[in-house]
Amino acid sequence: MNEHNPVAAIRNLAGLATPMALRVAVTLGLPDRLRDDVATVEHVATELDVSPVALDLLLGHLETLGIVEGTPGGYRTTDYGATLCADADNGLTNFLHLDMAGGRAELAFVELLHSVTTGEAGYSRRYGRDFWADLTRYPHLRESFDRQMTHRFRDQIPRIVTGYDWDRFSTIVDVGGGHGSLLAAILAAHPRIRGHLIDLEPTVTEAVRTLIAYRVRDRARVSAQSFFDPLPAGAQAYLLCDILHDWDDDHAHRILARCVEALGRGGRVLVVEPVGGRRANTEFDLAMLVIFAGRERRVDEFRALAAAHGLVLDAVVDLTDQRCLLEFRAVGT
């Protein structure tokens, strides 16, 4: 923060040119195209069928950012800019690419005023349908979203597995478990536990591959269904990992209701996600609002939400620097 020139500092924070330039560069594949082969603006513009004058302006700004550098033969990607290449495996491509789930969703921020005014998702206002309907309509968005969720979660899985006593449960239903990375890791670490993953097609097809890769497929079932429908009954734990913050209170109540009606005697509902005021950041909180009309709920909000379904909050465990686990039990158990 420039304390001596607050106007310049705020202008720098508010400017859209740089974040959009990075997104357009990734969408056009410029970091990859210019990584190993110096090329002129005219040559790249012809390849990509874009305006050479406009591309020159974009590359000029990317050069000031250190993403590319000019040479006598044209532009090339710097080592710093290679962070934006598709094979860097850091999640940035999904986050920035305008035709992938993450990058497309970020543009909902242009509707932040609508979301703050109404409490509704800006995504629906921008695209004419909600985020989940978009994933259903465009399979490539669902595929990129599943990859994004798997990558975002990958580095935290070891701490989640070791930071809680999963071995208390003989059966766990992973509700909306995505590609199955967390459930597979839990089962691999605890050979006596059996699991059941619930998610939509084609996500569950990938989950089967994950379970096979972890060599736990023989202890895990997979069902293609919505978590708004009745869940497999009688398990000791129903795991909701990064689920509730994607929904407003009405939908969150529906999800919890399905968990409670399926819960076995003495069972638990386990919520793993960022918790407001504890393991959540304000930027991500706004993203939940504009994309989903959700939010990072605080402990008291979770307690009130669950109480409507006869659930009592037993414990809050800080698993990582980003996520907590909230353990709920039914009243009287």
Rank of each mutant, 00 (worst) to 15 (best):
G234V: 04
H253G: 15
Y214M: 06
I255S: 03
R217K: 12
A233N: 13
F227C: 07
P232Y: 08
V222W: 04
G267H: 00
P230R: 09
D250G: 10
A233Y: 10
D229V: 05
V260M: 12
A235W: 01
D248R: 11
V222K: 00
V272H: 03
R217G: 04
C259E: 08
G264W: 01
P230Q: 10
L256P: 05
L270P: 02
A233H: 12
L256Y: 02
D250Y: 10
A220Q: 05
V216P: 00
G264M: 01
W247P: 06
R268W: 00
Y214L: 07
G234C: 03
R265E: 15
A220I: 02
H251E: 14
P232Q: 09
H253V: 06
I243C: 05
V269W: 01
Q225S: 15
L263M: 10
S226L: 02
R219N: 11
P232K: 08
A237W: 03
P232M: 10
A252E: 08
V271T: 04
Q236L: 09
A235F: 00
V269R: 00
V222D: 00
I212W: 07
P232F: 08
L239K: 04
D218T: 12
L231N: 01
R215N: 13
S226V: 00
L244N: 04
F228N: 14
D242N: 15
R221F: 08
V260P: 08
R219Y: 07
G267L: 00
D246T: 14
Q225K: 15
R221E: 15
I212H: 12
L231D: 03
F227S: 05
C259M: 09
C241D: 08
A252K: 05
D250A: 13
L240T: 02
D242P: 12
V260Q: 12
P232G: 06
R219P: 12
A252R: 04
A262Q: 10
R254N: 11
C241Q: 14
A237S: 13
R254E: 13
V272E: 01
Y238R: 09
W247C: 07
H245F: 03
A252S: 15
A237K: 07
H253L: 10
L231C: 09
G267M: 03
L263T: 01
L244Q: 07
A213K: 14
I255Q: 04
R217Q: 14
V271N: 06
L239T: 04
A262R: 04
S223N: 12
S223M: 09
I255L: 09
A237F: 04
L231E: 04
A262V: 13
E273K: 06
A257H: 08
R217I: 07
W247T: 10
P232W: 10
E273S: 11
R258M: 14
C259F: 06
R258S: 14
Y214E: 09
D250Q: 14
D218N: 13
Y238H: 10
V271P: 03
D218F: 06
G266D: 12
A213Y: 09
D242W: 00
Y238W: 11
A237H: 06
R219S: 07
Q225N: 15
L256Q: 09
P230I: 11
H245Y: 06
A257S: 12
G267K: 01
D248F: 09
